[in-house]
Design a binder for these strands. Structure first.
Length: 924
DNA sequence: CTACTGGAACGATGT
DNA sequence: GAACATCGTTCCAGT
């Protein structure tokens, strides 16, 4: 698994304009430099910083929270586990990615641990499907936390806000950079709090609650949704934007705010504060209440700013609050019923939101229900909505009832498992890693797409009832912290001729939730072609009272899907699956490296294994930096693994070779100062074997600490692998490569659903990963992994395809494995996998970048790169990565190019292996 | 003509 | 405090 991949190399990456994605392969060199990578890392990427140590500790927290919140929780067991288990993801992913097939070839090679980076690949997504469309409804809810809200849509930008913001927003807003991190942390604490896992399980069971109903309703008749919507709708849509404020007051945003925009929609000028702004903002300023709502203001509303403030503080406690909220209403939003119906309007989201209307009273209700002051927003919108559309309602009758539902439903910031018992909610087709979100001032930029040009697909396995369910979709965060609704992005319902899937919007705690029917007749599968992503102005959001997140550079999101299943015992089981991270910023999408997949998730402290990374925007000079942070965020250790062509580097040895327990660290790809990818997690395992020796594999290593050549072998493998590389974009792949998707699916499905659990369980082992990628993971603090789904998603990784690879990738590749060089170009990336995988062919693919990409990738993917590798080693691979520390070692094989070290290393490894007798794979 | 998009200008903020 | 680097947001133009 982990090991090598074969990448081919080609360095080129061409990407075209687009191309960003690429795979990098590298081996990380050991060199540990402690660089200040931090700078980069820290400074800029806020996100990253966050990450932290989820590690293990977190879990606890999570749990705690959960409990707190909910009470209701049910335990879901497996799911969580699964979810948590990184492994799964990894594994799965790997599996997905790399098809077994790959291994064959590469297998041997694979084994060796290498680090490669590949461009992403996204997933193959294939299909798309259709569905119907239908209602829309928007709604918003308010969150508990949130609070703020300003209403108005328009509000977002109020001029008034202007300065404010800073102050306002609490938290983070203020500081930026620094804040970022801090903020993050805070966040954690904060509202989001919600704890992780919460138990997914729904707590309540009551059916009424919600979901079910919803589900039903919507589901059944999607259209109806409207009806549903109402309820929801009721909630407030607006919520989100709510605030107008401008963080930067002036800044465009603010100004821009032209408020208009948003609200007005109009777009217009960029920054005008004017009216809307003003107004709005003011309102906003006034918090929530702002204009409209205020009156109503529902409770929350009622809250005065002050109150809000208070609330804010609460946030602090937010976790708790959140929990409470969740418990109570949250769930889904819906505010109160009362209003609800009206709200429905079909309006689209934002727009609506923006507009808002001041008047809406609705909000009140909502608020009541939820926290929602957000509701105001909702109100606005809704009211606005006033238009309300009403859509026909469905039979369901959600409308009013909903409120109830909500209560039972778990808060959106709760971490839920993707599978439980027989049920498994999986994302069969992952969204592309990049989707430029649209501002309110812009027109829609369309629905989120999958690699192939198709759309994401979500399916619920294990559900045999005839009753339709409702699949909820909202935009979640993709940082290292627990998954929670993203403050700066909202789901945007896409409607039109091209949209086959019916949906309606609902506001839940300031978060727009798109509800999509999951029908038995469709095998509980839904094509998500109705979900776009709206970007709210940072300034507007940051000003919100309760908002602690910073918008700057916080441009990654995940599609979060939830389904609530009523069970015989009256309880409602809630499952959640999150997609791979999606970069929503135009700029970031073009500049920031994105790691979609890593071939190795854990490895003995000795390091030395090659790791393959796949993702986007990898450049030749991209660097891979391993960082270990203390809980307080301090850097304990930092090492740069270079991707060297010549000398292949591997995973750098951990600073302390004597660790007795797994140590989770982070690593990221850096293209320059501020161009860092998110942090990926990596776990150093206690060396299995006694270190026989330590050789420095690499020079680099020397830097680092000692190096034991644990995995030297991998290196060897490299040779074989030549390919290192990586990848490409998935997108490209798509076309050609869709194949990948299938595999995934297949894989997933098969395994996933049913098996998945199992898998998970098994995998759980792994410490793992918390890849940023895997959404799920995010949630669970712990090691947990996300379930399969994600993994499946991962497949993407596998897909390399991207065009971009080119150069950047190459670099990596080259670095990673010289071998690669040999291998064909970019494709190599995929190839890599391929190589690893049985299919050498894939490799071939790689050879051709362009073409390759597609096909090759496909192949590669299909197999599931990761797995494949593993596969060859297959299983092992997975295992290796995941967990097994010992890891599996890698098979040895390979000949070392660098005999010297290689041999030594190999020998060592061999010895170790023997000693450990761990499972090693031989690839035979 | 509208919905999407890709690009890039503009201006604010951060280094 | 100036100059340059980054970003977010808005506009524009091509499909």
């Amino acid at each position: 698994m982990q090991d090598t991949f074969c990448p081919s190399v080609s360095p080129k990456f061409s990407f075209g304009a687009a191309g960003k994605e690429r795979g990098l392969h590298f081996l990380t060199s050991l060199a540990a430099d402690m660089k200040s990578a931090e700078e980069d890392a820290y400074s800029y990427t806020p996100n990253v910083s966050l990450s932290l140590p989820l590690g293990m500790g977190n879990p606890c927290l999570a749990t705690q929270y959960h409990t707190l919140q909910t009470s209701p929780v049910i335990s879901v067991s497996s799911c969580h586990q699964t979810g948590y288990s990184l492994q799964n993801d990894n594994h799965a992913a790997s599996g997905y990615y790399l098809p077994h097939g790959l291994r064959p070839n590469g297998a041997p090679a694979l084994e060796s641990p290498r680090i490669e980076i590949t461009a992403y690949s996204q997933y193959p997504e294939d299909e798309v499907e259709e569905s119907n469309s239908e209602d829309h409804i928007i709604k918003r809810g308010v969150n508990s936390i949130v609070t703020l809200t300003l209403p108005n849509a328009d509000g977002y930008r109020d001029p008034s806000c202007l300065s404010p913001a800073s102050s306002v927003s609490s938290r983070s807003c203020n500081s930026d950079a620094s804040s970022y991190e801090s903020g993050f942390y805070n966040y954690d604490n904060s509202p989001q709090n919600s704890p992780w896992q919460s138990p997914c399980v729904s707590p309540k069971g009551t059916p009424t609650l919600m979901s079910c109903p919803h589900a039903n309703g919507p589901v059944a008749s999607p259209h109806h949704s409207p009806s549903n919507s109402p309820q929801i709708g009721a909630v407030a849509e607006e919520g989100w934007p709510a605030q107008p404020r401008c963080s930067r007051p002036n800044s465009p945003s603010c100004s821009g705010g032209s408020g208009g925009n948003g609200v007005n929609g109009g777009g217009m000028g960029k920054r005008k504060y004017s009216f809307n702004g003003t107004t709005y903002r003011q309102t906003s300023c006034s918090p929530i209440q702002s204009p409209i709502p205020s009156p109503h203001i529902s409770p929350r509303v009622s809250v005065t700013d002050e109150n809000w403030l208070a609330n804010t503080n609460q946030y602090t406690n937010s976790a708790i609050v959140a929990a409470i909220n969740a418990l109570t209403t949250d769930g889904v939003v819906d505010l109160g019923e009362g209003i609800p119906i009206k709200t429905r309007k079909t309006m689209l989201d934002h727009s609506m939101g923006l507009k808002l209307e001041p008047g809406d009273l609705l909000s009140l209700d909502r608020e009541l229900c939820h926290e929602d002051y957000p509701s105001r927003m909702a109100l606005k919108k809704e009211n606005y909505g006033g238009g309300f559309l009403d859509v026909p309602q469905h039979p369901y009758s959600w409308s009013k009832p909903k409120p109830y539902l909500s209560p039972s439903l778990p808060s959106l910031d709760w971490q839920l498992p993707s599978c439980s018992g027989p049920y498994n909610l999986q994302i069969e087709v992952q969204p592309k890693s990049h989707h430029r979100a649209h501002y309110e001032t812009e027109g829609s930029r369309g629905a989120v797409k999958a690699l192939c040009g198709s759309h994401p697909v979500v399916q619920l396995y294990g559900y045999m009832e005839s009753e339709p369910l409702t699949l909820q979709l909202f935009i979640g965060t993709a940082d290292d912290r627990l998954l929670r609704p993203h403050a700066f992005y909202q789901v945007h319902r896409i409607t039109g001729k091209t949209v086959s899937t019916a949906s309606h919007e609902v506001m839940q705690s300031n978060t727009k939730v798109l509800e999509i029917p999951l029908l038995p007749e469709n095998n509980m599968r839904a094509i998500i072609d109705c979900a776009g992503i709206l970007k709210l102005r940072n300034s507007d959001i940051e000003l919100r009272k309760g908002e602690t997140d910073i918008g700057r550079k916080n441009t990654r999101v995940k599609l979060v899907f939830r389904v609530h299943i009523n069970q015989p015992n009256g309880r409602t089981l809630s499952l959640q699956a999150s997609s791979n991270a999606i970069e929503c910023s135009q700029r970031s999408a073009q500049e920031l490296p994105l790691v979609e997949k890593q071939s190795v998730e854990s490895y003995p402290a000795t390091g030395g294994k090659m790791m393959l990374l796949s993702g986007l925007n990898f450049l030749p000079d991209s660097k891979v930096v391993f960082v270990e942070k203390a809980q307080d965020g301090h850097h304990l250790w930092e090492t740069e693994a270079k991707v060297d062509k010549d000398s292949v580097k591997n995973i750098p040895p951990y600073r302390n070779q004597r660790i007795s327990s797994p140590v989770q660290v982070d690593f990221y790809v850096c293209n320059g100062k501020r161009k860092r990818s998110q942090c990926q997690t990596f776990t150093f395992l206690p060396p299995n074997v006694p270190i026989i020796k330590t050789e420095p594999n690499d020079e680099y290593d020397s830097l680092g600490t000692a190096r034991l050549p644990m995995h030297s072998k991998p290196f060897y493998s490299r040779p074989r692998p030549t390919p290192i590389m990586t990848l490409t974009n998935p997108d490209d792949c798509l076309v050609g490569g869709y194949t990948p998707c299938p595999p995934r699916h297949t894989a997933m499905p098969s395994s996933s659903p049913s098996s998945s659990p199992t898998l998970q369980d098994l995998s759980p082992v792994a410490y793992s990963k918390c890849f940023p990628n895997s959404p799920d993971h995010a949630a669970p603090p712990g090691p947990v992994v996300t379930p399969i789904q994600e993994t499946s998603g991962r497949p993407n990784l596998a897909h390399p395809a991207s065009p971009d690879h080119n150069s950047p990738l190459r670099m990596l590749h080259s670095q990673g494995s010289p071998n690669h060089l040999n291998s064909p170009g970019p494709h190599g990336y995929h190839t890599i996998y391929d190589s690893s995988s049985p299919s050498s062919s894939p490799v071939s693919q790689p050879s051709t970048p362009g073409g390759t990409e597609d096909s090759p990738f496909v192949q590669a993917y299909s197999p599931g790169p990761g797995q494949t590798h593993t596969g060859e080693s297959s299983p092992s691979l997975l295992t290796d990565d995941d967990a097994s520390p010992p890891s599996m070692a890698i098979t040895v094989k390979q000949e070392p190019q660098e005999l010297d070290q290689m041999y030594l290393d190999d020998v060592n490894e061999i010895i170790r292996n023997d000693l450990s007798s761990i499972s090693v794979h031989t690839h035979a």
